[in-house]
């Protein structure tokens, strides 16, 4: 469905701080794939997601969506295909607008916005039903400003908003990393529910190896901007944390850094 070929992306290109964040990445995402993305800090996980979303323009290579070259498409144009949840719970919603208003903005993702009502009565009925899905009791608080909600509530709403209009591709960028363990777990369960019930094609970046193994049908590991591991199907099901570590040593032949990746 979506294909990356030879994608290379630099930060601060031409300066002394030049970093090759993505290095000749080739990846084919199939319809219905739920891919977890792992890798140590600075491996290029978030950059890969941002490059997919169109936040950064690659220096070479191409992004093709259903046969259409979208490499040069800006972020807002790609948004019609993609739902996105960020690591920072504050980035996915507008604090000064109400729950209903935020959801209405998401309901019109990729559509023309004209001079009709921003939130209609029909919208509100839909939102009340949708919000019930996340089970936080927010259906009675549709007119509350989002700024009044907690990070976990905001993240759950962002997740709901990203999937309310079915996205062709759902991008989750360590979306539970900034939450407390309990909330993170709930958010993860919600993620699993939303993704599997609608069989959404999903790319989920995580620091947590167990999470990466447990969720999804495919796992890719990044290191220094390259995909060093790509397992799917049965091989993925049988994967253990030790396997991942062993794979990592084998491919890279270097000491695995003691960063957050091991905090499982």
């Amino acid at each position: 469905m979506l294909e990356l070929s030879g994608l290379t992306l630099y930060f601060h290109k031409g300066s002394i701080n030049e970093v090759r964040a993505l290095s000749d990445v080739n990846l084919t995402i199939h319809e219905g794939d739920f891919i977890t993305v792992i890798g140590s800090n600075g491996a290029g996980k978030s950059t890969l997601l941002s490059a997919l979303a169109g936040s950064y323009a690659p220096h070479s290579g191409s992004v093709t969506m259903r046969g259409q070259d979208i490499t040069r498409w800006p972020e807002h144009k790609r948004a019609r295909f993609m739902g996105r949840v960020f690591q920072d719970p504050l980035r996915g919603t507008c604090a000064s607008l109400s729950i209903a208003q935020n959801m209405a903005l998401a309901l019109r993702r990729g559509k023309w916005r004209g001079l009709t009502r921003g939130v209609t009565a029909a919208d509100r009925r839909l939102f009340a039903a949708e919000v019930k899905k996340i089970g936080l009791g927010l259906e009675s608080r549709l007119d509350d400003r989002i700024g009044l909600l907690s990070g976990g509530q905001r993240q759950a709403l962002t997740l709901l908003m990203a999937t309310m209009v079915r996205p062709d591709l759902l991008l989750l960028d360590e979306h539970t990393a900034a939450l407390d363990p309990k909330t993170a777990n709930q958010t993860l369960l919600l993620t699993e529910h939303l993704v599997t019930s609608q069989s959404l094609t999903t790319l989920m970046v995580t620091h947590n190896m167990n999470q990466a193994i447990k969720l999804g049908n495919r796992l890719i590991m990044l290191h220094q901007g390259e995909i060093i591991l790509d397992v799917a199907g049965k091989a993925k099901e049988e994967l253990t944390v030790n396997d991942l570590l062993a794979q990592f040593y084998k491919v890279k032949g270097e000491e695995f850094s003691s960063d957050k990746m091991l905090l499982t």
């Binding site: 807002h76 739902g83 996105r84 960020f86 996915g92 507008c94 903005l105 993702r109 921003g118 939130v119």
Partner: peptide, 18 residues
Amino acid sequence: QAMLATGDNRQMITSQGV
């Protein structure tokens, strides 16, 4: 509403296709 969102959270509204 898109204008209000642009002033509030540009990343959010860009992700909503604006």
